[in-house]
Simulated scan of single mutants.
Amino acid sequence: MLKMSDIARHAGVSPTTVSFVLNDGPEGERISEQTRQKVLRAAEELGYRSNHLARAMRTGDTRMLGLLGGRSAEEQVGRMLEGALIAADKEGYTLKLLRLDAIDNSAHQAIRRASELRLMGMIALHLPASILNELHIEAAKYNTPLVVLDAQYEMPDVAQVTSDDVSGIEAGVAHLVALGHSRIAFIGGLTDTLTARKEAFEAAMSRHGLAIETDFIQNSHFRLRETSLAAARALLCRESHLRPTAIFCSGDLIALATLQVAAEVGVRVPHDLSLVGFANLTASEFATPPLTTIEQPFTEMGKVAVETLLGIISSRSNEGSTDGKKSQPFIKRVLPTQLIERASTGRIAR
């Protein structure tokens, strides 16, 4: 087995110098660049490979992060994971994905698993509010840095990364109003994110001086196609003068279901009905007609979540020992959304 002394002899330096260079610690700053390169060349020539596990056991710096939750088969989750992996890899960290069902939907088990894996921090993605609250408590108890990704409700002492849904809703409403629409309906839902978007829609309509008819707000769900179809039918299966002229859907999949219902009942998009989605999933561009939607920067959100978590870890490290409880400052990073105009919206028919 290759030893430090072997590399030292090959490079013509002391074993201590080799240790300082290869362990990349603060002591290595005293080594000249010429000597450092000599050691690295010798290590490469002899086939040296750094033992990250041994170093992690010795220093506690495993350079491993955890991401809990999220359905990886969903496009928006996949994009956020991509961004998170890019950011983690850039800084030399590994990202471990933890499935919620694999830990019996338990926040306590999640933190216990994080401890077993010696994770340096965790990102929580799309967790139910009850589990997220428990995770917050457990993370504070075990001094585990935590970042909440893509959630629309605030928690004290927890860093959050999300998209600017309020501005996105405002942009969508303003777009429809500019096209002459005033009878605008909304399909939201009962999850925290969909409820927040519904409230943003109501506020945007109020700012434009527009009333919302009593039954023009319907509830659906991101993942439940039948509830989306039912909500769309409730708005479109009525006499033409009672229908909305535009529908703002709180998610692209809901909008795609609404497009299907419109075709079934003979409502032409955008001639009879303008339609706006939210997310800008790939399918929205391939819809007939292509869907106007609000784009969320999912990949960037994943990147920023990792960068925020690493910032917290670094600040704690700079404070000194992590044996005592460290308070985590409240950080909220809100990334901009963007209106993507396509063919599903048009001027109101006169």
Rank of each mutant, 00 (worst) to 15 (best):
I7K: 07
A8Y: 11
R9Q: 14
F20S: 08
V21I: 04
L22G: 03
E27C: 04
E27A: 15
E29L: 13
S32D: 01
L40Q: 13
A42F: 00
L46Y: 08
G47F: 05
N51C: 05
R55S: 14
T59V: 07
D61L: 14
R63H: 03
M64R: 13
M64S: 11
L68V: 15
R79A: 04
A84S: 09
A84M: 02
I86M: 10
E91W: 08
L97V: 13
R99S: 15
L100F: 09
I103K: 08
S106V: 02
S115H: 14
R118Y: 06
L119A: 08
L119P: 06
M120A: 14
G121K: 09
I123S: 01
A124Y: 07
L125D: 00
L127T: 08
P128Q: 00
S130G: 12
E134W: 08
E138W: 02
P145V: 10
V148P: 01
A151I: 07
P156L: 11
D157V: 08
S163E: 12
S163D: 12
D164V: 00
V166P: 00
G168C: 05
A171W: 02
H175Q: 09
I184Y: 03
I187W: 00
I187L: 00
G189Q: 00
T191K: 06
L194K: 03
T195S: 12
M205D: 11
M205S: 10
L210T: 00
F222E: 10
E226L: 10
T227R: 15
R233E: 07
A234T: 02
E239K: 14
S240T: 15
I247M: 03
G251K: 12
L256W: 08
A257G: 03
Q260H: 14
A263M: 10
G266R: 06
V267T: 08
V269G: 01
P270S: 08
H271K: 13
D272Y: 00
D272G: 02
L273Y: 01
L273W: 02
L275D: 07
A279K: 14
E285Y: 07
T288P: 07
T292V: 09
T292P: 06
A305Q: 02
V306P: 08
L310Q: 09
G311A: 03
I313F: 03
G320D: 01
G324C: 11
S327I: 13
F330T: 15
K332A: 11
Q338E: 15
R342Q: 09
S344L: 00
T345F: 09
R347Q: 13
R347Y: 11
I348P: 06
A349R: 15
R350A: 10
